[in-house]
Every structure is written in C-alpha cells, then in structure tokens.
C-alpha cells in the first residue's frame, strides 16, 4: 500500500492537518472510489427496481393479476422478488464491504489515529 504524502510537499514543515493528508492520500481515494462505485449504482438499481414495482402495482394491476402457478400471480412473485433482491443486496454488500472496504478503511483509520499523517 502506498504511503504517499502529498500534503506539505518537499521541504515544508510537517503537515498541519492529518485529515487533509489522509483525505488526499491515494489509499483514501481508492477507498472512496470503491465505496461510491458500489453504493451509488446499487442505490440507483434498487430504487428503480422498487419504483418499477410500485408503478406497475398502481397502474398495471391486471398484468400483476396474471396467474403463473396455481393461485400465485405475477404480482406476488414480483413482490417476493423484492424481498429476495433486498436480502441479496444486503448479503452482497456485506461481503463486498468486508472484502474490499474494511481492510483499507481500518488501515487508514489506524494511520490517522496513530498520527502517521
């Protein structure tokens, strides 16, 4: 991992603000990019998926009433899929976070708290 320190530059006194130093480090940039790169598209996805469901339920009830198996219709399957997708996104996020975010963030955290910056 990089220990690049851009704040202060060559020959200047020690950095006055460790937060700024941490903030401009490449590690933090990578952490933020990974976090936002996962969270923003996922939010866009589940919000549109949910709004699609709400709009269909409100404006296309006859479509939702089409039966697939026995008395189980599209609406019920669609609704249960919202549960499935919610559970799935939760699980995927937890895995993603513990694999890709937590190691990096705890590393930066330690350096900030230990006064390395």
């Amino acid at each position: 991992m990089s220990t690049t320190e851009r704040v202060g530059g060559v020959g200047t006194p020690p950095p006055v603000d460790p937060w700024a130093a941490a903030h401009t480090s490449t590690d933090f940039a990578m952490l933020r990019q990974r976090f936002r790169g996962f969270v923003f598209p996922m939010t866009a996805f589940f919000l549109s998926w949910y709004l699609l469901y709400v709009v269909l339920a409100a404006f296309a009830p006859h479509y939702m009433a089409i039966k697939i198996v026995g008395n189980v219709n599209i609406g019920l399957i669609f609704g249960l899929l919202q549960f499935v997708s919610t559970f799935a996104i939760t699980t995927v996020y937890v895995q993603f976070a513990s694999r890709n975010l937590d190691p990096l963030s705890s590393q930066i955290c330690k350096r900030v708290e230990g006064g390395v910056w």
Partner: peptide, 16 residues
C-alpha cells in the same frame, strides 16, 4: 473544505 475532508475520512474510516 477541511471539515469536509475530516468528515469524509471519519465517515469512511471511523477514525476516532
């Protein structure tokens, strides 16, 4: 901007 930097680092890393 400095407070934003601090806030963002705190938010993502949980420092302190």
């Amino acid at each position: 901007p400095a407070k934003y930097a601090e806030m963002e680092v705190r938010a993502l890393t949980g420092a302190f």
